[in-house]
């Protein structure tokens, strides 16, 4: 499954980058979401995929009884999901404010610090 998902993630990356390259400032936000999802999947998929073995220790045991999925990439991705949400919220507020102030949604109009 990993090679197949690698191709899908590559597609997500391409989609996100394409949106970030657009001049419409709103599309940039959509690209940002796609990119963060893709980046999270890169970490998750490259670490190797395992079905039905979540990294949990059964009650009464001191360690999992069988091989479990690697918990470290999961912890990293968890942090990344939350942070990318924070970044997205900030970017949205920024775009909103920018649009309110300079009345344009074309990034190419934003080439100087003075409007």
């Amino acid at each position: 499954m990993e090679p197949f998902l690698a191709v899908v993630v590559g597609g997500l990356f391409a989609a996100g980058l394409y949106m970030i390259l657009r001049r419409s400032i709103v599309k940039l936000l959509i690209g940002l979401v796609l990119l963060s999802n893709a980046a999270n999947l890169v970490i998750f998929v490259t670490a190797g995929l395992h079905r039905g073995v979540p990294p949990l220790v059964p009650e009464g045991a001191s360690a999992p009884l069988h091989t479990v999925a690697d918990p470290l990439p999961q912890a990293l991705v968890l942090t990344a999901i939350v942070i990318s949400f924070g970044v997205l919220a900030f970017a949205m507020a920024l775009v909103h404010r920018t649009h309110a102030m300079v009345k344009t949604d074309d990034i190419n109009d934003l080439t100087s610090t003075d409007s």
Binding site: E2, P3, A6, V7, V9, G10, G11, L12, F13, A14, A15, G16, L17, Y18, L21, R22, A38, V42, V45, T46, G48
Partner: peptide, 21 residues
């Protein structure tokens, strides 16, 4: 042009993932 840039970068990510595994 942008699509070309995006797709080549996406392809690179795929290749990187396959190599990293």
């Amino acid at each position: 042009r942008d699509a070309l840039f995006a797709v080549s970068m996406g392809g690179l990510v795929t290749v990187l993932m396959l190599a990293a595994m």
